[in-house]
Simulated scan of single mutants.
Amino acid sequence: MKNNILIISLLCASLLSCNKTKTENHHVHESEEQVILSEKQVASVGIDLDTIPLIMMGKNIKAHGQIAVPPSFNASVTTLIGGNIQSIKVKEGDKVYKGQVLATIIHPDIAKVQTEYIKAYNEMNYLKKEYEREQTLYGAKLSAGKTFQKAESEYRAAKAVVEGYKVQLRQLHMSPERILNGIIYDHITITAPIKGYIQEVPVHIGQYVDNGTPIFNIVDNSQLHADLMVYEKDIPYIHAGQLVKLKLTADPDNEYTGKVETIGKSFEEDPKALHIHVELDRKSNIMMPKMYLTGEIYTDPQTKTAMKDDAIIEEDGKNYIFMATTKDDHIIFNPVEIVKGETDNGYTEIKLTKDLPKGSKFVQNNAYYIIAEMKKSETSHEH
């Protein structure tokens, strides 16, 4: 009887040991789960493989604003004298240089100012001779001082009038010297005060324009910057030199970067915000003043290991990425457990739970396809 009990006990112990071994072996199998795909399959799905990238991440402040240009690089072109548009030499979008002729204007007053200059010049010369004659007589004590002073005053006043006409004519791009030689201009030219691009032409040929009426608008796009509004609560965290990532409303697929250059000193009440000037690292042809944009200001940027959100999968409360190893014309994918950190603009900071060979490559996107293949494999094993 005792021998039978002993044999039964040994059999039970043996069975328990077998079950334990089977359980442990199943656990190891799960931890070493892998998927093997051909290189052609990987390419067709559009899966990218690379090392874990380093991404600039940190606390950021969201802001919105517009593309802007400094006042000295934005010119509204007007005429100093009223007249009719005779010709227009440029169109919207044209690149122009400082001093380039943009249009011509005709009007009777253009000839009038030239004839008045000639008249004033001749009057000045007559008074000059009178002044010189009275000066000689006064020096010889043959004329009263009062007469000499009057001649001097009249000459100096006439000279000032002539100088005033000269300034006006040069502003109208006319040569006073040529006018005195009998060359009368029948039109005036409108020239570009700065280099840049023609943004607007709100006039047409034959139209009458008063002095001061905008005829063209020129913008030097090489000086474009971002003008962002930072709300009151975020102002203490902003300083010059901080990284800014920007997206144009008109170009949402491209990201631009820049740095905070200056911070405004005038606080706006509605909304309670401050303007900041962001110098752009690069510009594009699509950028124009007044275009809306959104920005993120990085107050404490740090370089961190991070992956795109669609390169990370979650299973049973744990997070994984997939390491890829190439063998012949196939690629072996193994899950690697990670710990997630902060997220930023489609990327999530990751920390590996174990050391891996330097230069290991990982799935950079579409990780859902790998996990789907893995689950298919598990299902087939169960059957």
Rank of each mutant, 00 (worst) to 15 (best):
K89C: 02
K89D: 04
V90R: 08
K91W: 02
E92Y: 02
G93K: 04
G93E: 04
G93S: 05
K95V: 01
K95T: 01
V96C: 01
G99K: 12
G99Q: 13
Q100R: 14
V101K: 03
V101H: 01
L102K: 00
A103W: 13
A103K: 02
T104K: 12
T104I: 06
T104M: 11
I105Q: 14
I106D: 14
I106M: 14
I106R: 13
H107P: 02
H107S: 15
P108E: 00
P108R: 01
P108D: 01
P108K: 00
I110D: 07
I110S: 07
I110E: 05
A111V: 05
V113A: 07
V113Q: 11
V113N: 07
V113E: 06
Q114Y: 10
Q114L: 01
E116D: 13
Y117S: 04
Y117D: 03
Y117E: 03
I118G: 09
I118M: 13
I118F: 04
K119Y: 14
A120R: 08
A120W: 09
A120P: 08
N122Y: 15
N122S: 15
E123I: 10
M124T: 01
M124G: 01
N125L: 15
N125T: 12
N125E: 15
N125C: 11
Y126I: 11
L127H: 14
L127Q: 14
K128L: 13
K128A: 10
K128I: 10
K129G: 15
Y131C: 08
Y131I: 04
Y131F: 09
R133G: 02
E134M: 11
Q135Y: 05
Q135E: 10
Q135F: 10
Q135I: 07
T136H: 07
T136E: 12
L137K: 10
Y138I: 00
G139Q: 12
A140I: 13
A140P: 04
A140Y: 09
K141Q: 10
K141Y: 01
L142P: 06
S143G: 03
S143K: 04
A144H: 09
A144R: 11
A144I: 03
G145S: 08
G145K: 08
G145L: 03
G145H: 03
K146I: 09
K146F: 05
K146V: 07
K146E: 08
K146C: 01
T147S: 11
T147W: 02
F148G: 03
F148M: 10
F148V: 05
Q149R: 08
Q149T: 04
Q149M: 06
K150G: 00
K150T: 05
E152A: 10
S153P: 03
E154I: 02
E154S: 12
E154R: 11
Y155L: 08
R156P: 02
R156H: 00
R156W: 00
A157M: 09
A157E: 09
A158Q: 00
A158W: 00
A158H: 00
A158M: 05
A158S: 06
A158N: 01
K159R: 15
K159P: 11
K159Y: 15
V161R: 12
V161T: 10
V161S: 11
V162E: 07
G164N: 07
G164I: 06
Y165H: 07
K166N: 04
V167R: 12
V167L: 13
Q168N: 08
Q168D: 04
Q168F: 06
Q168S: 06
L169S: 02
L169G: 02
L172E: 11
L172D: 08
H173M: 12
H173K: 14
H173G: 10
M174F: 07
